[in-house]
Design a binder for these strands. Sequence first.
RNA 1: GGGCCUAUAGCUCAGUCGGUUAGAGCGCUUCCCUGAUAAGGAAGAGGUCCCGCGUUCGAGUCGCGGUAGGCCCA
Length: 1147
Amino acid sequence: MASPSIPAIERAVLASWEAGDTFRRSVANRDAGENGSNEFVFYDGPPFANGLPHYGHLLTGYVKDVVPRYQTMRGKHVERRFGWDTHGLPAELEAERILGITDKSQIEAMGIEAFNAACRESVLRYTKEWQDYVTRQARWVDFENDYKTLDPTFMESVIWAFKQLYDKGLAYEGFRVLPYCWRDETPLSNHELRMDDDVYQMRQDPALTVGLRLLSGEYLLIWTTTPWTLPSHQAVAVNPDVAYVVVEPAQGSPLAASVPDGEAPPRVILAEARLAAYARELGEDARVVETIQGSDLVGAHYHPPFPFFADEAAYAERDQAARDALGVAPEDNPHAFGVIAGDFVTTEDGTGLVHMAPAFGEDDMAACDAVGITPVVTVDSGGRFTALVPDYEGVQVFDANAAIIADLKAGSGPLAAVPADARPIVLRHETYDHSYPHCWRCRNPLIYKAVSSWFVRVTQFRDRMVELNQEIAWTPEHIRDGQFGKWLAGARDWSISRNRYWGTPIPVWVSDDPAYPRIDVYGSLEELARDFGDVPRNDLGQPDLHRPWVDQLTRPNPDDPRPDDQRSTMRRIPDVLDVWFDSGSMPFAQVHYPFENADWFEHHYPGDFIVEYIGQTRGWFYTLHVLATALFDRPAFRSAISHGIVLGSDGRKMSKSLRNYPDVTEVLDRDGSDAMRWFLMASPILRGGNLVVTEEGIRAEVRGVLLPLWNAWYFFALYANTMHDGEGYRAQRVSPDADGRLAGYTEMDRYLLARTHDLARDVTRAADAYDIAGACQLIREHIDLLTNWYVRTQRQRFWDEDTTAYDTLWTALEALTRIMAPFAPLLTEEIWRGLTGEESVHLTDWPVTVRTEARAESASHEDAFTSRPARTLYDVEPALVPDPDLVAAMDRVREVVSTAHALRKAAKVRVRQPLRSLAVVLADEAEAAAFEPFAPIVASEVNLKEVRLEDLGSDAAARYGVVTRLTVNARAAGPRLGKQVQQVIRAAREGDWAQDADGTVTAGGVALVEGEYELVTQAAGTGEGELAVAVLPGGGFVVLDLALDAELRAEGYARDVVRQVQDARKAADLHVTDRIVLRLGVAEHHRAAAQAHRAFIAKETLAVALELDVVPEVDVPKGGVAVVELARAEADAETGDAERATAEVTE
RNA sequence: GGGCCUAUAGCUCAGUCGGUUAGAGCGCUUCCCUGAUAAGGAAGAGGUCCCGCGUUCGAGUCGCGGUAGGCCCA
């Protein structure tokens, strides 16, 4: 059909693939080669399937299909295993939702076993739907031989990786500051903070400005909205690049008044930019004693706000318990209570000096860690102060604010024991309204709190990661040294433990008695079995590393010499691994390395190709690279596409609630998968840009690419099938003769084949460079050429049953569908099957195009065939004969046609009006000769009786008048002439130049040397009389003879009549093959013309009878040339022979 | 606040090593053509190449500083 239902075609193709097992065979057809030498290794980035796929998944899925399909056709063996990401917090939250519970205590109450069972069910809930979507998008991927991160084999490889890191000293335990819900007694991930818009709510907190007394006497002003963190204070941070001032408060200011008469008022230090904000306390005319840089303050020491950790000995003793509980080795804190540098310090609010409580702030932790200050955790899991802060022990931190503020102001409580001149002062106490994070479950205000965590010591091999990144080919290129490279260079240690339930367990067992410490790390089921007597087993008795089964493995501490009944026990730490550790382990864990497939893995790592959206530079791309570097000292992948973000039709992020994007199912049902694939693949999104998805955009690709391709095929099939009186014609592949020539084919045929050759060559180049959008652009241009140049100009040959035309079009379409197959796999499949009668385009080979070299080589080295790898490029596409000269000549033809049309247009002569002649004047005889074969094409396109070729060497120059124009090659002349080149260019443009007798060209007074200029000959004017002259863009010119005689006018008139009748036919809703009875009424002065072309008119309009009358001119309708009346011919005439009918009319 | 990216015609985007007069597709206007095509052809309108400074004989392109937007981080 001419207007096909593409989705229907697609469904039929999909069904045939399933029936024919085509995917599996396309993989199996290709030899993997020795040690996988002929494999293309693709890693599937596991999606988290806890929901349905959206455009982002579809986009990535299409790329994940295009590249392997292409490589398969190139002859590679490409395994494609689907991966499922199954662990992690999203799964747990979904399980909580299903189970109707909201916090960890409820999980503990119901039991981890039941909870994890719910998690497992939730992550596999949508696998069927995913499979359906992936199948519908024509993505070939192996669902049977898939991998899941919850598989015991996968998990065993993951704990192996952890142990490797531990053994290399690259895994350690430390602190990590997280949002923490003291009511639910659980840390939250940063992701949970962004989960709901109303997680951040306005809240009123006390804000204190406190002065801490430097040993030199001045007070550092710090500002905090969490007074409860002051007892845990460890340092003050300043921005080293900010200016600070030492200020003496004005006489009579509140601060000056606070000291007894006679005593000097205290001097305070704050950022210069914040001085005005404290005018109330310091007085309007407070005196700036000194201005200093932040860096000058770094290292200064002061008296802490509270005395809890001031006494080194007491601190060490009291903190020991907390440290022991966390398993951290004791170390002192010599740097505490000093000024440290922090780039994050701003002067937007506060004082420009920031109070650091490293256990309760991320910045605090990082800045203190940099100078060796360890956090002091003074708050228990319920948010209450511990014995480390005896004065407030047991008080919830928010409740403690009031008491802390009161003690600070009054010097009471713990400060009573501190000498007055070492106490802090409270400069300001205000109420602060700010946006503050709340627990998304219980709506209580969160705190930030240090929790114990395991880390990968990324900082230790960070530089190596940067080096290895240089070996990766990124698309777009800037990712390598930009977003990804910069991220690597600034990488911090990776926190990999999560205080959760559903994940790969951290395989660390510790003694439960600090008196007899011991740590065991396990990297395999076998090691576990050795120490615990058996592997962990679930309720079905199957090996299962998940909690709670793995936690049930305990044993007496071998390092504990006490009798058995008193011995300490080795227990697993409760944490599970960050899910990103799972996905980073995917290359080896999917094959259960090193327990199985060690040899395979060696030869398939790094992988050849991965693709994800740009955000994965901090996600999958990153974790793959971290583990690859740490474990194997090589990159995990050779090339990566990092695509942009898919936006909704309004340019904003796609949002379910806004409904700002086309429904996926609707698009697939109406326009089809290939339309969506092409739309996405041809878009800038694969070059890193963002993409707005609109239905119009998708439809535009259907109209611009898919339908023209289909119609080219439909045109071919329609006429090939009706050839030889309906017997049909089976087209042959064009094949060159022994000399490699396409003798017997027209220029246009050879041109199409040469262009198809170029297409294959250029698309190969683009696809090899992962420039998928570029490949699509090339194909789009080629389809335009095929349909709107070749087919349109050659239609008559098809109606004339010229078999070379059929063979040529068949060959071109067959190659085109192969080239396009990865980018529109369903539609090309249907067309290719129609063309060849064979099974699948995806089981064939990519058109390879190095025939010239291969021919020479294979001729001289006959044995080269056998000694070369399977798919080296031999004479596989003999029909696609490159011909650069022919391609260039045809470009000239299109120039000539276009220019001649422009002349007609300027002279207001319609194309239907035949003209006598066109002269094409080219530079020399050779060019004219090369053009000669195309003269008929020009004649028919421009509607000319004759196309003459002339060259400038003939008398054409004299007859039409020519000028010579000077063009300067700035690239060549610029370096030699320097500044003068501008002068020369201007002179050349203005005609201010001359050529000497000896040939020297001088422009603007400057002599030019060979190669710096070009002399171009052009027609001078627009021609004389009825000759119209126009310059060709590539040099040369055309001269169109606009003179009309009666004969030409008559012919033009006849064609006008035909046109009008065709319109009337269309208006009468006639079928294109319907015969008609026609009556024409023409004006007297057109009678002769109509008579002369009566047969032509009848033939063109399929008129079996034509009655011709003369009517008064006024009866002819406006816009028409005749009065037209027509009716469908009677049935017997309709079935009669058209030519006989025409003959009757002629008589 | 930091890092990265982007900014070129009404829209979506190309623009190579810095080289003379900056392109394509779509859209728009007018005209033409039309027995495969939901098409095709021609002409036209439409540009402060985000702004500024600099380097250079010459800058859409290179450098610096801004502005706006996107992504990520904080």
